[in-house]
Amino acid sequence: MTRLSSAFPSDRAALVAFVTGGDPSPADTATILDALVEGGADIIELGMPFTDPMADGPSIQEANIRSLGAGTKTADIFAIAQAFRERHPDTPLVLMGYANPMTIRGADWFAEQCKAAGVDGVICVDIPTEEDDSLGPALRAQDIATIRLATPTTDDARLPAVLDNATGFLYYVSVAGITGQQQAAQDSIAAAVAKLKAQTDLPVAVGFGVRTPEQAADIARVADGVVVGSAIVEIVGEHGKAAGPHVRDYVKSLSDAIRSAR
């Protein structure tokens, strides 16, 4: 059992919580990550900031700008991940971001850094299965999960290619769009998850546009995981350095809803 596979309990959905690393500053991220764990997050997604986050809506774009404005470097992200691993030996941590910061020094370098920092998986938004060579083999060689995205446009013919070499879990992006905008209808999510689960044994986590405990609970009834990002990042944006307790309380409201959903 890896940290990632044991993070999906059999009797309830897992809560996957995203924040942008280095927002509002590298020094403040540890407190926010601890608040995610205290609030009940099962898996942490740590965003690597990028100047051109073209799959993200305004909330996460602004978080990227705040992080880079605070001087966050790739080395800071790995330092944040490594310190998290020391404080939380059992909570899986996944890096999420864009291809250029991940590949600029070479895929092997990135994979080695992930391994050394105790990172469990990587989600790269703009490396689809067709370009897996650019990063996937290096990560898998270090036993780092390569977490793939499936979307409403991923049709039946294409799904096997997306699942090929997918590890850790499958991230179902429930709307064709950017992060933090609107949520898909519950019926379409249930149908999509059922279709995906028919083709893979990987846990399926659903995200994009999830904001309220009610939405989280609805998804928790049909999926193995619920991903929440923009709504948490907005709390960090509003409260800055003092965001910890607010993040914890909000995440706890999601976690409670998910735990009582089934």
């Binding site: 291809a99 979307t151 446009t153 991923t154 294409r158």
Partner: peptide, 22 residues
């Protein structure tokens, strides 16, 4: 046939766009 000019080019897009690009 994968859109590469030597090591350059390719299709580095989000999964949502990939079916459309194909």
């Amino acid at each position: 046939d994968r859109g590469h000019f030597g090591e350059f080019g390719g299709r580095y897009v989000a999964e949502t766009l990939m079916p459309l690009i194909l």
